[in-house]
Simulated assay, not measured.
Amino acid sequence: MEWTGARYADKPTLEVSTWIDAPPERVWSLVCDISLMPGMSEELQSVEWLDGAAGPAVGARFVGHSKHEAFGEWHTTSHVIEYEPGRVFAWAVEDPANPSAVWRFRVRPKDGGTELSEWMQLGPGRSGLSFAIDRMPEKEQKIVFVRLREFEGAIAATLEKIKERAEA
């Protein structure tokens, strides 16, 4: 990832992909099981479906409990905004109309295996990052860049763990 100088209001995005030597159905089953995600993330501590939901569907909600050295502990409610079985699973964090972040997994058959990508967008709604920017507005671009770099590393690690499980 190269320095872009993006501001939070720009809704900066990033995407990381990997190829997995496993069928798309196997990869998809791992991506859609949100109960596995805390074991694949340093930040996400626990997650559970809300309102009696048992799995992803547009409109379903889940709560995630997270922890970060600089931001402390917090929880967010996410809303599934896109769900195409076997292909796409996306959710908006907090307000779907003005999310603090949007996350998306995409699964595609490729070269006898599966291409898995994870994409994310910061903002435009307020998040923990907003408070850091409020305290140091002159450093906004650096704060955004550093957080995107953290997410890039975390996403790469998550994809690697999904790959290991799918190929096992």
Rank of each mutant, 00 (worst) to 15 (best):
S78Q: 12
M40Y: 13
E118C: 04
A97D: 15
H65I: 03
V88C: 06
S41D: 06
W49H: 02
I81E: 12
R87I: 02
R135Y: 05
L148G: 07
A101E: 03
D21G: 12
K163H: 04
W49M: 03
G64A: 08
S35N: 04
S35K: 05
E138P: 04
T4R: 11
Y8Q: 05
H79E: 13
N98W: 14
A156T: 11
E94K: 11
P38S: 06
W74V: 03
V146P: 01
V47Q: 06
V16R: 07
K11H: 12
E152R: 15
P23K: 11
E164W: 15
W49Y: 07
M120A: 12
M40G: 07
V88F: 01
S35T: 06
S78D: 15
W103N: 15
I162Y: 05
E48V: 10
A9V: 14
H75Y: 13
F131C: 10
P85K: 08
D33E: 06
V58L: 08
V47C: 07
T77K: 13
I81K: 03
L14F: 04
W91P: 12
P24G: 05
S127T: 00
K142P: 01
F151W: 14
A92K: 09
P23A: 14
T158D: 10
V58Y: 07
S29N: 04
E164T: 14
G153I: 07
S127E: 04
Q141Y: 01
L30G: 01
K67S: 08
A53F: 09
N98P: 08
W91S: 07
W74C: 06
P23M: 09
G72C: 06
G125E: 04
L14E: 01
L50F: 10
G39I: 06
E115W: 10
G112A: 13
G72F: 09
A22R: 06
E82M: 00
E118M: 04
G113N: 01
G153C: 03
E152H: 15
E2D: 13
K67E: 04
T76R: 12
G52Y: 09
K142C: 09
E140P: 02
L36W: 09
E2H: 11
K11R: 15
S29G: 10
V16A: 05
E140Q: 06
A9F: 07
E164Y: 13
S29D: 05
E118R: 03
E82Q: 05
T77R: 12
F62S: 02
K11F: 09
D134M: 09
G125V: 02
D10T: 02
E15I: 13
H65Y: 13
W28P: 06
A90D: 11
